[in-house]
Design a protein around this nucleic acid. Sequence first.
DNA 1: ATGATTCATGTTAGCGTTATCATATACTAA
DNA 2: TTAGTATATGATAACGCTAACATGAATCAT
Lengths: 356, 356
Amino acid sequence: METLKKVAGILNQKQNVTIKQVALRAGVSQMTVSRVVNKQGLVKEATRAKVQAAIDELNYRPNLSARRLAGGKSLYLGLVYHNPSPGYLTKILVGGLSACRENGHHLVLENLGLRAPFSEPVKTAEYLAGTGLDGVIVTPPLSDIEKFVDTLEHLGTPVIRIAARNIETDKLHVSMDDKAAVTKIVSHIISKGHKDIAFIKGPETHPSTYHRYDGFIQAMKANGFKVNPDYIVGGDFTYKSGLDAAKLLLESPKPPTAIYACNDDMAAGAVTAAYMKGLTVPNDLSVAGFDDTEIATNIWPALTTIRQPISEMSACAVNLLAANILGETEADTQSAILDFELIERDSITLPNKSLK
Amino acid sequence: METLKKVAGILNQKQNVTIKQVALRAGVSQMTVSRVVNKQGLVKEATRAKVQAAIDELNYRPNLSARRLAGGKSLYLGLVYHNPSPGYLTKILVGGLSACRENGHHLVLENLGLRAPFSEPVKTAEYLAGTGLDGVIVTPPLSDIEKFVDTLEHLGTPVIRIAARNIETDKLHVSMDDKAAVTKIVSHIISKGHKDIAFIKGPETHPSTYHRYDGFIQAMKANGFKVNPDYIVGGDFTYKSGLDAAKLLLESPKPPTAIYACNDDMAAGAVTAAYMKGLTVPNDLSVAGFDDTEIATNIWPALTTIRQPISEMSACAVNLLAANILGETEADTQSAILDFELIERDSITLPNKSLK
DNA sequence: ATGATTCATGTTAGCGTTATCATATACTAA
DNA sequence: TTAGTATATGATAACGCTAACATGAATCAT
């Protein structure tokens, strides 16, 4: 304890490494240091090097509070979410946080899981607008409640949505091409020799469900396969729904050799359903998911899935929103569509009962 | 887009509700307003009411940055982690972040998953100390690498650990009583009528493993039950290890009627193992876990488990660490032990094959 | 060479808040 | 009453930074 206290004393001095001291050390004015730190291009290379050296020696870190106070460009951005999977939220947070820190903004977490955004979108939006946030990042599924987002904007709160690709292009958003992603992974399954591929859908209320379904259809058609309606079953993104859906599929007269589930949780449920039937994965049944969340690697076998660039999406949302609020927006930076990635793991192999 | 830009303009003005304006409106000085806002007891009731009215009318919200600048107490706190489960990390982040925001501190995320803290604890600590952080919050399992934590402290970086209860009382830490928690949940299983209860351990390297095991033993002994050595099997906190361990248990001549697994992932694996054996949970086998992470509610049946107050722990860690660094530490606020909670869900019921 | 034009840097004045000290008012005790 | 003490409020100066303007040096065209 004494150790810590003493240390604290040292630190407090150290904390005082201010722009003034750096300026003194480098033999320039504070403004020049500020310019170096902010990477403005009006400093001679020699000076910049001198200043940078002083910064490094003193281990100077700009004081965000002072910066905000002086520049007025440090924003309080709300990140609203509603019972997302922890894996998703973590990635959103990590990305958003680091983008915020780089730009001196603050991320304020708003958990709407305790409110009723679906049944009372206007009221919820009014609450949010009243918090004095400079802007709000809206994550799925909240980003699909039009009434909620619209109200927020009408009340004068800038909004950016993170969502599947389903948004009018003139509104701020960050998204990924769900359809193309599913097309890619289903094509991958097909390339392994599967023909009888079942599809477990997401909830009807979730727009991404449709995009993913379209992606599935596209992959099947592109390979000249017919889509067997019996192989299309409903789900709601929960493990249980995946388990039930897969049970149904595996009990049919001619069960599929592969199941594509619209997210990892349902895929995990499908794996369990296979076990319950005495089948093994991937030998008797191939399975794949979507999201690359925790459960994809925590079950056995690990799931082949689509990785969403979630951290990048939220970092991007922070930057876009901030630029927009501060009026720094370029003509075409209103939205961004990021790339996905196919993650190959151990849940897919050649079909066992291939009819070849 | 135009809308947003205009809005930004409005916002910037709106942001200007400053203490000065409130003071003017209330006919007092800024300091008096400040005192009202900060609830210092040196303001006459009449004045306070007047000021409060002005605050409400103008919808004044103090500017955190200015406050921090003036108060000069804003810290950069590192949060170091190493491949935690996303559910755990999310909760840590939410708690830590909100505590930071309240006090005007900054949380800097440091993912050590990419380094080698276990094999190179000193080097890793040196790296961290070199980042200029004012203090560091160390989460499990890093909090159990003595060499790492010690080095950090020797290098002058204040540290607080979040850990299971296994720390000398004179070092800063926040923890939960793992042993008592397991005693409670195992007693709960026993109270449902189970006698043949198996235990799936965590990895030997993880101190909480021992505490949880002790808790199990204590519950069994307290009820006068013998601990069958065949019912104690190893695991490593992964789903797969839980699955394998449970398989083993269920194949024994006299399988247990209940399995207690040291975390939720292993419990989930045990549930799957039961399915693979053609058993149903909870009718043929009761199962319980620890942590109350995502997977506990995402599988079916939902797991009865122990909820760790993770967010509270990290909030507490932030506050304790900050107080310590700023020298505001009271005599006995060096550490905190928080309460757990038993979460009853659907994975436990009366034993089917009771020998009664 | 001369003023015009760039480029590089410095100076000054806040940003909104709180600490600190100063002042004014009210209350006590003799 | 008179000083003396407590209580309530105000004035002023930071906190660390950047915007905006001011200055000085270097380059240029003519």
